[in-house]
Amino acid sequence: MAAEETKNLIMTVAAEMFCELGYERVSIRNISEKAGVSHSLIRHHFGSKEKIWYCISDHLHAYMQKYILHLLDELPENTPANVKLYRFSVEMLAHIIVIRQPIQLIADAMRQENEFFDYFIDSHGEIESVVNKLVDAYNVSHSETPLNMVELKWQMMMYAHGAACMLPMLKATWAEETQDLDACLVKHWSMFENQVACRFDIAAADRLTPSKLEDLVHKVECGWKETPL
């Protein structure tokens, strides 16, 4: 197996285990056994479990940056700022709900050392810069109701975390209406979509009404895998 393929395999297995078990409960030996590669080979490529985590997170950051830019580039240039923010918010939430591992990784990081937490709340990175420019454009044209992006981001994280980590309760919420998980996820997403649509005064014609959330997830290639984890 080529060196790059080996590194990708190790990161994929480690990411799955970090999400499923939590960082603290996973050892390099655990990763070695599940990946089918030697303990020493993992040490050779990464040095430590912490460095594996940072490598995974670096790829996640790069992917999310590319995905966000793709979402914004897909919208016509003359799209009003309120519609851009609406589309960005609801489509990003759809992505995070469908591809759950990133929010699971982030949630686990919140329980770890402060350096892990700080890594995910960097407010000066390129992603934040791109989004803040969009928020500034919105606030210029809606000075009477300025947007606090931190609050919107917090709402998005709460909805994403609920879908990723409380699936039994989510399914129980709509058990009398449907037993289909995809349908439940759409209903969960729709609660957020309705709040955002009202917040940004989105016309009915501009609102999204997917039958399943996968329809809102864009295919964006990245250096590691087609999706981040």
Rank of each mutant, 00 (worst) to 15 (best):
V220L: 01
N30R: 06
M191P: 00
H124W: 12
N78V: 13
D201C: 08
K84R: 15
R25K: 10
A160T: 03
E221Q: 07
L229A: 13
A197S: 11
A172Y: 14
T145V: 09
G36P: 01
E221P: 02
C55F: 03
A183G: 04
M191H: 10
E113R: 15
E128C: 08
L72N: 07
L185S: 00
R25V: 00
N114C: 10
L69N: 12
T6P: 00
E16S: 08
L170M: 05
G162S: 05
S57K: 03
P228N: 07
G36Q: 03
V98C: 02
E33S: 10
W174K: 01
S190L: 03
M156S: 12
F120P: 04
D118Q: 14
E221G: 07
K84G: 09
M11K: 09
I127H: 01
K153Q: 13
E115L: 05
C19W: 03
L229R: 06
S32Y: 06
E16K: 09
K219R: 14
F120A: 06
H45A: 02
W224C: 07
G125V: 01
A35L: 01
S190K: 04
L167D: 09
E50S: 07
E113S: 14
K66P: 00
R43N: 14
R43L: 13
V90N: 02
H59G: 14
D215E: 13
R43F: 11
D180S: 08
Y86E: 00
N78T: 14
M166Y: 11
M191D: 07
K7I: 06
G162Y: 02
L181R: 12
G162W: 01
Y63W: 14
A183C: 08
I52G: 01
A197T: 01
F116H: 11
